[in-house]
Each structure stands twice: as C-alpha cells, then as structure tokens.
Design a protein around this nucleic acid. Sequence first.
DNA 1: TCCGAATGTCAGCGTTCGCTTACATTATCA
DNA 2: TGATAATGTAAGCGAACGCTGACATTCGGA
Lengths: 95, 95
Amino acid sequence: MLTRTAADLGAVIRDRRKRLKLDQSTLAKKVGVSRQWLIEVEHGHPRAELGLILRVLDALGIKLDADSNPSAGRGVPKTAVDLDAIVAKAKKGKP
Amino acid sequence: MLTRTAADLGAVIRDRRKRLKLDQSTLAKKVGVSRQWLIEVEHGHPRAELGLILRVLDALGIKLDADSNPSAGRGVPKTAVDLDAIVAKAKKGKP
DNA sequence: TCCGAATGTCAGCGTTCGCTTACATTATCA
DNA sequence: TGATAATGTAAGCGAACGCTGACATTCGGA
C-alpha cells in the first residue's frame, strides 16, 4: 500500500497486526514499546518517532520501499523534463 | 530502495535532494522544517517525527510503499502455516 | 589561489514525546 | 446473559524534540 500520511501507516500496522492475530499488548512487548504508544500510532499519531515505527514494521514483516523514481511505473510519464538542464539554464539566465 | 532504518531513509532523502539540485535550506523551507532538522535526518536521526519525514518524502516525490505481504515475491515461502489454526489449537489445548 | 556558498556544529528554550499506572468502554465467547 | 479479554482514555513525569541564531568547516567555481 502507498502511504503518504501517518494515518495510512497506522492503518497498515493495525491491519497487519490483526491479520497476525496479535493483540496490542503482545505486539507492544515484542517491539519494545508501550501499549499506549501502539494505540496512538494505530490512530495515526504523526509525531511518533521514526525509529520506533520502523521497528514495528519490521516486527510485523512489513517491507518499506522508498521509490525515488516515481515515473518508473507504467503511469503518467511525468518527469520527462531534464532538471539539470533547467537549473543550468536558470543559473545562466539570471546572474 | 528498501528502507529498514532511519539511516536508510536519510540516505534516500539526501540522494534525492541532490539529484534535484536542491540545497538543504531550500528544501527545508519548502517542507516547512528547519535546516537543522534536515541535517539530522539526512544523518539518520531515528527519533525524528514521522509526520515531518513523510512531508519531506512527499516534497521530493518519493513514494513510500508498505508491503504487508512479503511472501508475495519469489522469495522463501515462509508463511506456509495457518496462524488461525495454530491459535485455535493453542486455546483448546491450554484451558 | 581565494571567495562565497553549502554543510555541519553548538547552546539555550518551550513544547511534546513516550512511559507508567489506573480506570472506562467495547468486543468476544461460554 | 454474564464474565473476561481487548481496546481506549486520562494524568503526571523525565527526557528529548525541533526551533532560533551564531559560528566552524568544507566544497566549488572564477
């Protein structure tokens, strides 16, 4: 699933946890966080620590893929422009 | 790229930023964070806020994909077990 | 070589985290 | 229906966040 917000990530986590038939207490203990924290994260807490989030994803076997090249898919070929060229031109044109 | 740690994510961010020919100040302003923060994140700060991280990824056009079903690929078919069955049996066997 | 820009570091400050503990509220099943 | 587990909420506390501002250090081009 594509995740753009903390709520998205929280949903993924909760989903996976339930699919694995784990309760919050068990998962929290397994990961090394408080149950309290897990609750807030599953609800989409945006200020949670990155590291703890990553630990949870790992514990649940969720792979996180950061795709730096969005145009790779068969979607709209957005990045048909040459950023380098644009920047270079901008530098020259506006001294 | 597969990211399991904050350092991984930091590397992806820095990479993408440079590829886009942006300096830290510019990106920071664009995202709405301090340059200070960006520096720490690019260095792999694990306690950064999830929400801010997501904002940066978004601003850089980096898509985050959370794959809840790792066994989908052609890797080791780990989850050949029926968790439901196991749990059910455990409940019966230990009243 | 030298100068400016980009990057990294430091200190201080108000805010918020994540933790613990205890108590509601809501499933879930015999 | 009633009991037990699972989930959600609240308050209080030490620690760390992210910010501002100023100052090193390194990089890149003339």
